[in-house]
């Protein structure tokens, strides 16, 4: 999309009612004929623009896509998303964000894509990143010792719970450490990457993959069985830009609370929304498969498992699932 296109969209968005072709051409410093051509180009991209003689143009609807230039229009944040990068095709938004951080980007940089060619999860596992999803990475530089960096992964989980439950009334739960599930199906994955030495965090990239408008036909059969989307849960198409704005605003709200020492309810919130606590679970680590009961999540975020022998064990990294 050209800059002039983006400028026209901005004008149409901010204008109540109609804006005349003459007015547009004056504001943008191009001919009325050029404006007309750009309006046609926007229509072909899916924008519904009404043209009425003597009144001018009016924006009726926008395509349900993350179009550059539009994403910040309703975004009310102090620093998250003040710079938004929208690569058209991207291997992984985390990789793009890491690159840009190394080149000196400011905290709050957000990389967002609708498709990832190499979306990934824990330990290089593939994360199905087709059209209809929201894939974003946010650069943060938390003022925390590195051993507390995992608080950010829990923060991301409660942010997604807040957005999904409060704004969209989806009964989402947290599967430790921070996968977001609805029932037995995954709706959101969070992968955080960090650079730190023992003294300080250099940077942290919060990667969030959210299934928004995918339907069963968008996924291969084996994915259909384990995945769900916001559209599948609500029965309605969901506005991608609105979800994007809600996620960024909620991340910033909770992150500022964390930085100010106000996020005292983090673990309580994680525990209250956990789908594992109190259940018999299967634990998969490199050492193999084992079983136990998930009994607690400690202040450091670790999961406590009670073995059949009564022995308690703390987990830091493992695949844990409810035993069926």
């Amino acid at each position: 999309m050209t800059t002039i296109n983006q400028e026209i969209i901005k004008q149409l968005h901010t204008q109540e009612g109609y804006i005349s072709g003459e007015n547009l051409s004056k504001r943008l410093g191009v001919s009325r004929n050029a404006i007309w051509k750009q309006i046609e180009a926007l229509r072909s991209l899916g924008y519904e623009i009404e043209a009425t003689p003597r009144l001018g143009y009016r924006l009726v609807s926008t395509p349900n896509q993350l179009t550059p230039g539009e994403m910040r229009l309703n975004l009310h944040t102090q620093f998250i998303g003040q710079e938004i990068v929208t690569p058209t095709t991207v291997s992984s938004t985390n990789d793009v964000a890491k690159d840009m951080v190394k080149k000196g980007a400011a905290e709050g940089l957000t990389v967002v894509a609708q498709v990832q060619t190499q979306g990934r999860g824990r330990r290089g596992r593939e994360w199905y990143s087709g059209e209809g999803g929201l894939y974003l990475s946010i650069y943060l530089k938390p003022n925390l010792p590195p051993q507390e960096a995992s608080k950010l992964t829990l923060l991301a989980a409660i942010v997604m719970i807040e957005v999904l439950r409060n704004d969209y009334h989806i009964a989402a739960e947290i599967k430790w450490p921070n996968d977001i599930f609805v029932g037995t199906k995954k709706i959101c994955g969070i992968l955080t990457e960090l650079r730190a030495d023992p003294e300080a965090i250099h940077y942290l990239i919060l990667g969030i993959g959210l299934n928004v408008n995918q339907t069963a036909k968008d996924w291969p059969e084996q994915v259909q069985e384990i995945a769900t989307s916001m559209q599948l849960e609500t029965g309605k198409e969901v506005n991608l830009k609105a979800v994007f704005v809600r996620v960024l605003e909620t991340v910033e709200k909770q992150y500022l609370r964390l930085q100010n020492g106000m996020l005292t309810d983090l673990i309580a919130n994680v525990k209250a929304n956990s789908c594992l606590l109190g259940k018999e679970v299967k634990i998969l680590t490199k050492a193999g498969e084992s079983y136990g009961k998930a009994v607690d999540i400690l202040d450091d975020g670790s999961l406590v498992i009670k073995r059949s022998t009564g022995q308690l064990e703390k987990l830091w990294a493992a695949d844990v699932s409810v035993r069926l």
Partner: peptide, 13 residues
Amino acid sequence: IEAMKLMNEIESE
């Protein structure tokens, strides 16, 4: 180093 899906890639200083 992984802890709770937080991947810390350690670089040599």
